[in-house]
Amino acid sequence: MAARGFVCGLLPLMRGRFCSRTSCPARLAVRAFSCTANRSQLHRVEGTGALTGKVDRFGGVTVNLDDVGLPADISESLFSRLLQDSLVQWKAEGKVAVWLRVPISLSRCAAAASTHGFTFHHARHDHAVLALWLGEGESRLPGFATHQVGVAGAVVDESNGKVLVVQDRNKTKNAWKFPGGLSDPGENIGATAVREVFEETGVRSEFRSLLSIRQQHNHPGAFGMSDMYIICRLSPLTYDINFCTQECLRCEWLDLAELAKTNETTPITSRIARLLLRGLERGFDNIDLTMEELPAVYSGMFYQLYHRQLPPALKS
């Protein structure tokens, strides 16, 4: 406060007498005061280890500004410098993304982050989450979820009883599972299954039926929201595998009987493998929930209804 008062006292005395842009004593005093304040803030921040965060299994880092020890009065410019230094380090470490959780009390830090390419991902209650993709190519960060819909495709070759399975590269436990991913807004379940299977394995397929739905709340991959995981039965149109090495560690056509009994899989995959074996033995009409498009009463649009097949006489 004393320095601020000194500067304010100098301003009327110096106005009109020493006002060159480079040598005005008032300007020099203000600049010196500003630099002193920034050095003080920087010292306090550097004592906390600057910006640190938690690294996730996908190679991203999450920084919660509530937890890193920033001064409550940190300036936008100083935070920008800290963030810039951190980004250099994260890029050198090969991190693919940064999630920045900004409390509303430090919202000026969001403005500083935007100058480095961060964009808003979502906001809830007293904080906002910004994101920055650091990896190669277009961003592969998921959109914000209210209810997340994941879809997998069980591509069954009925001629030999084999099914297409993958092992995710980014999983801590590399278990066999059906290829799949998140459904895009406005995308039908069957279309998601076909698209994700092709993107992960290079195999083209067509939708046949819905096999199962799993519901899970507070899902760790859905930002604490609810998750719906749907498995569809698909038929192969091609058979050659050309899997995505960025997402998959392995990809194979595996015997359904082997998948049903191996320990190198997930409980849901094992259960669906046994369900598919039943379909091969007794007919898929015993396990399928088929899809039919019906007109919506009020909007005039169409929706997709999934259910066990009815005899033709009962459909009308």
Rank of each mutant, 00 (worst) to 15 (best):
F58T: 07
V166Q: 11
S40D: 13
N286K: 14
H43A: 14
R4Q: 14
A37G: 11
A92E: 13
Q215H: 14
V149N: 05
Q167H: 06
V156S: 02
F144H: 10
L87E: 04
W133F: 08
G137A: 10
E93R: 12
G94I: 08
L130S: 05
Q216R: 11
G5L: 15
Q84R: 12
G221R: 09
V151T: 04
T48P: 05
L276Y: 03
L234H: 00
N174D: 05
L65N: 02
L289C: 13
R39G: 06
A191L: 05
S75Q: 04
L294K: 12
E292A: 08
T201K: 07
P71F: 03
A191I: 03
R17A: 07
T48I: 02
A72F: 11
A97W: 10
H116L: 12
R31L: 07
R140V: 09
W176P: 03
S316K: 12
G143Y: 01
P236C: 11
E247P: 01
L254S: 02
N174S: 11
N286P: 00
T52F: 13
M228N: 07
E46T: 10
S183I: 04
Q304K: 10
N174H: 14
P185G: 07
A260F: 01
R124N: 08
F198I: 00
T265Y: 11
C24F: 01
D73N: 12
E247K: 12
T22P: 04
C19E: 15
V129L: 07
A128F: 00
R27A: 08
K162N: 14
A222S: 06
Y303S: 09
E136I: 06
F223W: 02
F120S: 11
R308Q: 13
K171F: 14
T192P: 13
F33Q: 13
E158M: 11
V45C: 14
F178H: 05
G161V: 07
Q304F: 00
H147C: 08
R101L: 06
T36N: 07
L106T: 03
P185Y: 06
R233N: 04
V61A: 02
S270A: 15
